[in-house]
Amino acid sequence: MSCVEGEPCVEGRKRRRALLALGLMGIIFLALSAFSFLDSRGQAVPRTVTYAGHDAIAGKRVFQAFNCMGCHTMVGNGAYFAPDLTKLYGQVGPAWLEAFLPSAGAWPTRAAVQVQLADPDVAGEAGVTGVEEYLTKFPGAAERIERRSAHASTMPNLPLTKDDVRGLIAWLKYTSSMNTEGWPPAPRVDGVSLRQAKSVPVAQQTAATSPDAASAGTQAAAAGAAAAPAAARGEALAREYGCVACHASDTRRLVGPGWGGLYGSTVALTDGSSVKADDAYLVESIVQPNAKTVAGFPSGTMVSYAEILDREQVDAIVAYIRSLGEKAQ
């Protein structure tokens, strides 16, 4: 059919030539593939990356188990519902991720990041000594705190353990160190400050970016010290220091136990004993959170606030918890 009568039939030759070209392409493809994964290429590999004693491969298993790619993208592949995670570690640093991941439903505050830096492992990984230095080194964290601090996020809280969180951070540290050949392209302008680029209704944008909004918590905490009753001050502190990211004001379980109805109740502990949630217990749980762990919760998730809050602030938070207990009863 493909041969017209009276002309020499070349169809067979054409087909053999097509298969030959295909074979050549196959060889090129395999050669390029081999070049892509040689050690001499110098690409980062997860085998050599660890974060605070957790290795990146374990983190990859967590990343897959929670199907993070089902909302986010990684090297641009995934679901386009949430931001790309490839270079996140380099932008926000470990302390911000430590503060965010256990309670992803809310954006971390500056104080919450500061709390994480109290852990020498985290501070060591970040390579900084204080929160000021941290925010300079990781401008992504500074921007997030300025614009989103203490707002609700649209990510659901995930039941991540301390090991899961650190594994994930190790994985993100690896992906962040990968050479992705110029992707994503670096923006030439700063979208936040560009006038014509405002995509959020102006009122909302001002509210989110103005320094008043960002530091509202701090001001309320400072100014209200004398006037407001201790419980209100405690509430402001709880928001400011990121407590509410993990502890609900009702009986729901987020990352840690809910505070509603907690005060005065009897709490079962992991060692089988139980304790009455009075002032002394609550203070101890803030200052030395791992001394007594509530049954059903992993130990070592919460950091100690002994160096972060003074005694008066701890008392105010306890007063706030007490007020929640009274409301629930």
């Binding site: 001499s40 290429r41 110029g182 992707w183």
Partner: peptide
């Protein structure tokens, strides 16, 4: 190509 730095021998 969007990006070329000729860094790697290949």
């Amino acid at each position: 190509p969007y990006w070329r730095d000729f860094g790697y021998w290949a």
